[in-house]
Nucleic acid binder design. Sequence first.
RNA 1: GGGCGUUUAGCUCAGCUGGGAGAGCGCUACCCUUACAAGGUAGAUGUCGGGGGUUCGAUCCCCUCAACGCCCACCA
Length: 888
Amino acid sequence: MDQTHNEIEKIFSPKDIETKWYTRWEEGKYFKARKGKQHRPFSIVMPLPNVTGRLHVGHALDATTQDAIIRFKRMKGYETLWLPGTDHAGIATQAVVEKLVWEKEKKTRHQFTKEEFVEKIWQWKREYGNIILDQQKSLGASADWDYAMFTLDPDANKAVREFFVNMYNEKLIYQANYIINWDTTLQSAISDAEVEHKEVKGNFYHILYQVEGSDEKLEIATTRPETLLGDTAVAINPNDDRYKHLIGKKAIIPICNRVVPILADEYVDIDKGTGCLKVTPGHDFNDFELGKRHNLEIVNILNKDGTLNENGLQYKGLTCSKARLEIIKELEHLEILKEIKEHIHQVGHGERSGTVIEPMVSRQWFLNVQKMAKQGIERVTADTTRFFPKGWENTYFAWLKEPRDWCISRQLWWGHQIPVYYCKKCHYTWASKDEPSGCTKCDSSNFYQDPDVLDTWFSSGLWPLTLLGWPNPERMRERKFDTFYPTSTLITGYDIIFFWVARMMMMCDKAIGNVPFNHVYIHAIVRDKFGRKMSKSLGNGIDPLEIVGQYGADALRFTLTAGSGYNRNLNLDPERISGYRNFMNKVWNAFRFVHPFLNTAEQKLPTSNKLAPHERWIISELNSVIKIVNDSMEEYRYDDASAAIYSFVYDKFCSWFIELSKNILYSEDQKARAQRATVLKFTFKKIVAILHPFAPFITEELWSYLKSPQEDLLIVADFPEFTEELVFADDQNNMNRFIEIVSLIRNLRASVDIKPKDLVNVEIFTEIVEVKNYLQNNLANLQDLAKIKSMAIKNRSDIRPKKSIMAATSFCEIFIPLEGFVDIAAQVQRLQKDLQKAQKEFDKYNGKLSNENFIKNAPEDVVAEVKHNASEFAQKIAVIRENIQRFN
RNA sequence: GGGCGUUUAGCUCAGCUGGGAGAGCGCUACCCUUACAAGGUAGAUGUCGGGGGUUCGAUCCCCUCAACGCCCACCA
């Protein structure tokens, strides 16, 4: 036997088997969708990692939760497809390559032509662009990598053009001079969603504006005095008695001496600031709207890099912040700066660049999302697409309720170029799904394409369609669009509900009239053990690849699934990973024990009447775990599923069933041995099967020992299902009593410091025949598990042993006679404690029963249960009392 | 400014439509018992954030206060 044990390493070492099995799966095409017994598809679109990305623990959670459900469904017999891809991530990627080129060649992108520089990015992409996908493989991700696409692939461009041109022709995409968020570092427009508001300490500057043809001065409060150079009006509330009389008059802007109207608008808040507002339509969102209402002139004072232009007069060329200082000086000099008050306010910053966003008016492309947003809300309200947990609907709705048109153009080089063309000859403008050869109108070849590119989210918003071949009919057939669209589940973090989930819902639905996914599971965001975001500056990041090297992919995966339910944060403590690494080792060693006996095991389980009680018990317990795992997975409760498996393996299988099997396996009874081996094998096969979605590597390895030669790899084995016929309530009941007795004996031993090697005699008093028989049949097991020498089973009418320790259950009394000195006082004290506990419980139930309103109002079954509990504790109390007396 | 969420054992978190609180890790004591010391056995710990209400009964429902967190919002 020992030799056989030694064939398998004592300590599970994940490294060797991880590569082995991943290669087998990949080469065996196991990640490909194949028809199964369900005759139903299951598909997931992988949230796009940026090509520049490196695997962090957030990706690991993403990949693990997706892979677990994919493996689960695959085993359940769904035609299962996981669609990977990478995102060109316009700004991020361009920035990475710009930095690299600067480091290498000391050149900026402006020293290249656009074509040259874009080619450099492509070179970079070809070399490094697949790193992140490869990294996911080390976690066991079972995606169909042949399906992988890049958002800038020519086929992705087809989808982008298709959607763009259709929207353009429907007039939902339009070009307009509008105030947008201008990022002066990127020198591009960015969308509202990409602006991050940060609290900034600033000042309120109270400036006096002269009213034309009067001595009166208007006191205006502003946080941005430099923008006064762009002021084209002063506004007050029409109901503000302080200023009413000035409506229609004019004010003179200091420094530039522009004469502007004083107008009335309800928007102005009487109580805010001085109640008097300078209006800068060129550089403020509200002022822009106000300006539109009143037909105000727009004065732009900024260059693309954020410095002042010629409208900045003598401050031309200065940055905003420098100009602000200079202008403050000048206002002081003019003695019209009345006061400066400290003021904390929210200022928009570029999400990528971190620089202060300048609202600026410029000509940009917009997508009108009003109707799409409405539809997006309806789809979720109608449960066509369901969120798990449901609460995240709110976040989704919040975004779609009051949508502003989406600024989709970016002044970058890296991205899908806007497919709009301008004829230089006849000045015709048109949008085209293909590369045109000439002007649609006059056929001139003298035309050019709009130089702007589209927001990255424009292409990722169409991603489910793109991956499945839309809009090319042939490609759609190849990629089985009709089978896999709509995809089953989208799994992602809540941070991109706006950016991505909402946009896919709007765009895909608009494009083909059907939602992109039926379920959305929103998982937690991974934080460090203190709940802090993981970041480079804090140095609290956990590198998943390092963890995989240290503890194995299975341990990491199990930690992540055990922590993934409906929670919004997952605080990851490396100690927990090591805890689950221990669990993997436990499974491994349980197998090491079982392994040598497997050769005598049958493939099929005997009929239930032939099974031993313990065998029926473990099968019944196994059956309930299988149910929990199946049910939990349907609701994305990875935590419940993981916990159920964990406790079954530890608390049922290893602690009891393996221990109880030793006597049989080491006995001479060939038949019993073979049968026990069969049950162990049966159970173990189910264990590795239900564990496989969470810990694919170790389970596939163990499966290779357990499977019959005809059976395929575990990755495509049948997932265990709950079976009504395998519920054995009586056996569970008896076993629970047995466990209680063993635990109490151990407990008694510990209370008087009896060492494990010192065997004791036990006397058990009960009237219940079932209990008597069960104990009789388990004498050997009791000897092993409770370390006893002999056991006497007696009636309650029999005499209790004198010097002894005892404990009571509701169905029996357990006595351990002690030789030599017994500390009576200590025994009585212990029993008193037991008594108190039981009394407390009894009082609780009895209190209820003596409340007639409870009897009257509570449901029958609850009352019955309380009655039952009360009588059980009453019995226990009586027995303990009796024994305390006996000791005295 | 608006909205959402959280508050349960030392730590991280479960707790389904109300029947009286659980897990993992950690901690303490004792054990190298022939699968596993990455192990075994036993054990301790909670006024379920505070206050009020509904109910026979509240961790769960309602109100209120407090602390913390997140998201959204146009820089008067």
